[in-house]
Design a protein around this nucleic acid. Sequence first.
DNA 1: CGAGACTTTGAGCCACCTCAAGAAAAGTGG
DNA 2: CCACTTTTCTTGAGGTGGCTCAAAGTCTCG
Lengths: 242, 242
Amino acid sequence: MVTDCKACPLRRHEIFQKMTREETEKTQRFKSGELAVDPGTPILAEGSNAPQIYTALRGMGLRYKVLSNGRRQVVNFIFPGDFIGLQAGLIGEMGHSVEASTHMTLCVFDRKDFYDFFRNSTERAFDVTWLAASQEHFLGEALTTVGQRSAIAGVAWALVQLFRKGDALNMVQNDTMPLPFKQQDLADALGLSLVHTNKTLARLRERQLASWSEGKLVIHDVEQLADVAGMELEEMRVRPVI
Amino acid sequence: MVTDCKACPLRRHEIFQKMTREETEKTQRFKSGELAVDPGTPILAEGSNAPQIYTALRGMGLRYKVLSNGRRQVVNFIFPGDFIGLQAGLIGEMGHSVEASTHMTLCVFDRKDFYDFFRNSTERAFDVTWLAASQEHFLGEALTTVGQRSAIAGVAWALVQLFRKGDALNMVQNDTMPLPFKQQDLADALGLSLVHTNKTLARLRERQLASWSEGKLVIHDVEQLADVAGMELEEMRVRPVI
DNA sequence: CGAGACTTTGAGCCACCTCAAGAAAAGTGG
DNA sequence: CCACTTTTCTTGAGGTGGCTCAAAGTCTCG
């Protein structure tokens, strides 16, 4: 049986299904073009030249880099629908590692097919490029946060981003969404220590701006939180028609 | 007369020349498809939906974002050959501002033509995507630096990056290259204060690792500096053949 | 019930910040 | 070419936001 890739950002089901079917036949390992991984499982390693590319279907994960001194920078949080390994597919090598934070199921396809796919449809090629550019845009924002915002503004910024992304994916109900990460993950994303991140989260909780515990993030007034972050809420971009 | 766009990263001269010629006719403003700007001139503004895209032919500049509180994050340094406005071309809006640090001359073409260009050649479409992905890769590195490296390691990292990029462009002679930026620019790139950046540069100079003054950066032993930065020197990536 | 993983809190410290002011360059106009 | 102004660089002094160390509290799970 072939996986339904509705969740793939490129929405080209027939292509993805073909890829995953081939993948299945080739490796004899994936029952249905899906790959299921447990929390903590590394999916891609920095510097690797992995032949696979994935789309997250369910579950969440982290992109991160680690320095030789052991410090870790979380580059991004992965949500359902996100692409994993685009960099490897494009420039031939991963610039970061990826691992699962929760149980995840991934849609698998391989690089060679990715090239064909890119070549055969300018429409889809544009989508891929759009995705890369969006990611670049996001990283610019993140860099600005880490470089210029105070701890409380940075944490507020991150929570707003996560909440809005969750909202776009219909994960928010009653002002709350699942956020299955550790405080250490957020700390590493913001370049803060765990201790200070914890204290900053406590401050936001006291001020009734945001409360994150037991894997649930609750935000009643996003605008107020965005205000603390010193950011304007830009509306979600939609891929333009080329 | 039509500009020679050898320096454009996409090397598709006939296209670019056509674009710039059209541009010239349309605006009656650019004598030869080139645009010359003075130091300090804003080229693109964050949030703008500019119809133009550029390639830097000569001179250097800065990409940056400014926060509502007035703080500025320098996102990247622009060298000859770099693309300017790719984001606007792809996702319809600039995520950062761009301004010239030196006198610059730019190769101008417009967005509509960019779309056609993208659509009409999968080869070039791939190049664009590759560029976007490379930029994403770089930003991930920068984020890691700002988030996880100490001031001295961060400054060392930045100088190594600049020096290697200059080297790739044959701007290095006798271990020295032109670096026409201000210390404030570097400080804003690394999320450090001007004062601390200055003192850190002084330390590197004392330790004979790197010396930057009067617009010239001198590095005798890049590996030693990379060591201070705690980075491995990865070799320059070349766009793979698709 | 004990072990391990995560969160919370307290206490002291330091890397980097801000404020301030002088020195050196780099324009600018006559 | 020289006074004058403005910008950039440099250095000192003192302050603080966020860090590290340490330990206790909570939760999960075998």
